[in-house]
Amino acid sequence: MARLNARGLLSLRGAVLPLGALSLWWMVTSLGLVRGPLVVTPVQVVAVPFLDASGRELWAALGTSMARVLAGGLIGGLIGLTAGYLTGLYRLAALGLSPTVHSIRQVALFAWIPLLTAWFGNGEATKLVFTALSAFFPLFLATEQGIRQVPRPLVDVASVLNLTYLTRITKLYLPAALPSIYIGLQIAVLSAWIGTIGAEYAIGNGRGLGSFIASGRDQFRMDIVLAGVITLAAGGVLLNSLATRLSHALSPWTKDLR
């Protein structure tokens, strides 16, 4: 009971800063200490997704972005997982693929956008490819690393027991690499989310949270921009917790370690 209270207090302590900032914002704007066309109150920001015609588009935008991040992330993630598995396990694949991927990784992600729009146009394809690319790199690196670190003694056991190739993948290499893959997944999910929003924002047309924020800015609607930014953060938190839940569900043997 005492521990629970201590925990409760600790989490309260974490709320001090945001609540303080919120009340300061609220005080400053409602008392009229700061004025101007770009100044909005917290109440306006909370109300805009429900009461305003343009603001209500937030929900559709959120849905579109979520669908995009899941689709693109899944494509890029699976390719990253497979490529990382191959380069982690096979010398030949590592020699052929790793130097290229590690060099391309040095290119800042958003520098890809001009090239991608030239190749895939200004539509959905570019956004998906960009999201896939954002998810690819972290998962590739983490999987490659994880597979390389499979303990040699456990590989010996697989040889002694004469395990089939499929069993080696599913019961040895993948589970052994999972802790590393999870870290890659956490990074990939956030990277893909930023990638999706970024692509929407940079390309501008079509639906999505990024476009929503961009058009709010163009109309000088700071309430819409702020509501979009808060939703963006909430989306990131949601995706992050989804990734954590997925990790835990896939590795029940670590239950008592958590």
Binding site: P153, D156, V157, N162, T164, T167, K171, L172, P175, A176
Partner: peptide
């Protein structure tokens, strides 16, 4: 076949005891 027991148990930590023993029956 030739079986082997190592000094350290070398069980796969992500498999239950049952599944670890089951590995021996893979083929």
């Amino acid at each position: 076949r030739v079986g082997m027991v190592f000094q350290d148990h070398r069980l796969y930590p992500w498999l239950t005891v049952e599944a670890n023993v089951g590995l021996a029956l893979d083929t």
